[in-house]
Amino acid sequence: MADSSAPKPSSSVKLVLLGEAAVGKSSLVLRFVNDDFQPNKEPTIGAAFLTQKCQLPTRTIKFEIWDTAGQERFASLAPMYYRNAQAALVVYDITKESSLVKAKHWVAELQRQASPGIVIALVGNKLDLCEDDEEAAEEESSGASATAAADDEEGEESEAAAESTENNDEGNNSTARKVSLKEAKSYADEENLLFFETSAKSGHNVGEVFTAIANAIPETSLKGRNAGAAAGAGTQAALTGANENSRVNLNAASGDGGPKEGCAC
């Protein structure tokens, strides 16, 4: 909205959020769209749809966000939502090992089934829960890497591996963190994913994720359907735009603060 006067090219991007139940998908979206956090957020039923704009130096990206339900059995609904998605946020909970396994499944699913060239970001959420042991984690790398190494050996997708490490974790639950930065990062690198650790609660890194995605969307894929919609639908598009803006701005106006540097909305 800051640059609403500037006639920057604007295009919309369909983004889908996937990940295990209760990892904080809806919370991330709520933080991004309303800069708000609700500790007792109802689980998403099916999917929720929200929009938010993201200003880049050269263009405006309007995210059409599809926030999906995380429970395993809702997985069969997912194709309905990631259809035509240009970007995906695959979220896991850094305090829960199994959520990374699930995230890997989603990445694999997207790589095979979603539109080719989809930009995928892997996001480890609930960083705030690990703040205390964050310093420890830094030096702990010796201890943590042992777990990570073990995992790597057993193969990325082996559920058995996940379970065994989960058991290990039960022993040393002195630290809330159950997925090491290193492990997730190396997986993300391997699969060519954007990678962030975030906290929907504190807002840490949330804006960055979306900005990074916006930047990663290739210029070419921004044409097609979105350009058509913006240009072709005339009054209707305008009306739509107005609605969106009023809704979004209302909420965003209140607490547009630190976390969203990159995303000037």
Binding site: F49, Q236, T240, E244
Partner: peptide
């Protein structure tokens, strides 16, 4: 009938 995208439809 005026809504042309999911967002408007939902709102």
């Amino acid at each position: 009938l005026d809504a042309t995208d999911d967002g408007t439809f939902i709102s």
